Amino acid sequence: MSEKCEWLHEKLEKLPKIQYPFEKSSLPKNGIYFFYEKGETWGHDGNKPRIVRVGTHKSGNFRSRISEHFLFEEERKMDFDQNDSKPSDRSIFRKNIGRALLNKDDNDYLKVWNIDFIKRKNREEHASKRNISKEREIERKITEILRENFSFRFIAFEGGTNIMGKEGLESNLIGTLGQCSECKPSKDWLGNSSSKPKIRESGLWLIQHLKDSPIDEADKKVISDSIKKSGQKFY
């Protein structure tokens, strides 16, 4: 497993890392992204950056997915109240960073933070529990952390390639990273404070697909070909 993890990291290093700010229009409409975090290095030879999250999206929504993480259109999206969902309800990545921040401080507001306010039923039943000022403070901190500490690479895919879910390439990539015995989080990694055991144990900002099958030789060919095409077209 460790060899496959090392192979994946090295293949992706052929592509530049993207940091905020960047032009959303420069991104593909479909693809898989790989996030890196300051202070996190792989466990193979040397001190290369370690992948800390893999993600994708529904068809055609790659740009909007990345935008939700980094909170593009920040002013509009931060203008929410008790009858609206907060930005982190639309980005599990943001939600997990918020969970770690709250859990690190042993803050009871974690119980409210965990509620998905996209659902109308939850908004109606739990609106009175919300502290909007506090939620905005947490959201601002998450945005600051993502923009300052995280960067990403991506592989673009044309239609027809199965990249999502249990049967998609995404799950094999996560399985490869999640089961690597060499790549471990640093002692100062924020994810060590997560309320989710799977995040703490894996060293990844992920909960699903950690035990799925790793990439195989067929996957490697798809990845290699897509990296080459992505580099020619988008970077």
Rank of each mutant, 00 (worst) to 15 (best):
W189S: 15
F150V: 14
L210W: 09
L8A: 13
H126P: 02
R120N: 11
E40G: 09
K121I: 08
D219T: 10
R147T: 11
C183F: 00
V54L: 14
R147C: 02
K187G: 13
K196H: 02
L146K: 03
R140D: 07
W113C: 11
K95T: 07
I163T: 10
N103L: 10
S181C: 13
V54Q: 04
R140K: 07
L8T: 14
N107R: 07
K95H: 12
D84C: 14
G231T: 04
E6W: 08
F70E: 00
D45M: 06
N103I: 04
K48D: 05
L190T: 12
D79E: 13
R147G: 06
R140W: 05
K58V: 07
W205A: 07
P185G: 11
K166C: 09
W113L: 14
S2G: 14
G98F: 13
S88C: 15
K77T: 11
L206S: 15
E144R: 12
K95G: 05
L169P: 06
L71D: 07
K38C: 13
F34V: 14
I145C: 09
D89V: 13
Y235C: 15
D212W: 01
K104Q: 13
R94H: 08
S91F: 09
N192D: 11
E201K: 10
L27R: 01
R120M: 08
P197M: 05
F93T: 01
S85L: 00
F62I: 00
R153S: 06
F22M: 01
E201S: 09
I132A: 11
S194G: 14
F150T: 02
F62A: 08
E201T: 10
P21Q: 07
P214Y: 07
K95Y: 04
P16S: 10
E23F: 05
I66S: 04
K228F: 07
Y33D: 02
S226V: 06
K11L: 05
Y36E: 12
T161E: 05
S194T: 14
N83T: 15
R65K: 03
S88A: 15
G178I: 12
E201F: 04
P197N: 12
C5P: 03
S85E: 01
D106H: 12
F22S: 03
W7H: 02
V54R: 08
G60N: 03
H209G: 13
I163A: 05
H9S: 13
K121N: 14
I32L: 09
D89F: 01
K121M: 06
G55L: 01
R130C: 13
L206D: 03
E182F: 09
S230R: 01
K233Q: 10
I227W: 04
W7P: 00
I223S: 09
F152V: 13
E137N: 08
I92A: 04
N192K: 15
R53K: 15
V112I: 15
D105P: 00
R200A: 09
S181T: 15
K77P: 06
G178P: 04
W42E: 06
S85K: 00
S2T: 15
A156W: 01
F35L: 14
E23Q: 02
I199M: 11
G178R: 05
F152I: 08
K111C: 07
R63F: 00
F34Y: 03
S133W: 01
E3C: 11
K17Q: 14
G165I: 06
D225F: 04
S195K: 02
I118A: 04
E170N: 10
T143Y: 05
G98K: 04
R94A: 03
S2L: 07
K86L: 07
K129W: 09
G159Q: 10
I66W: 01
N30G: 03
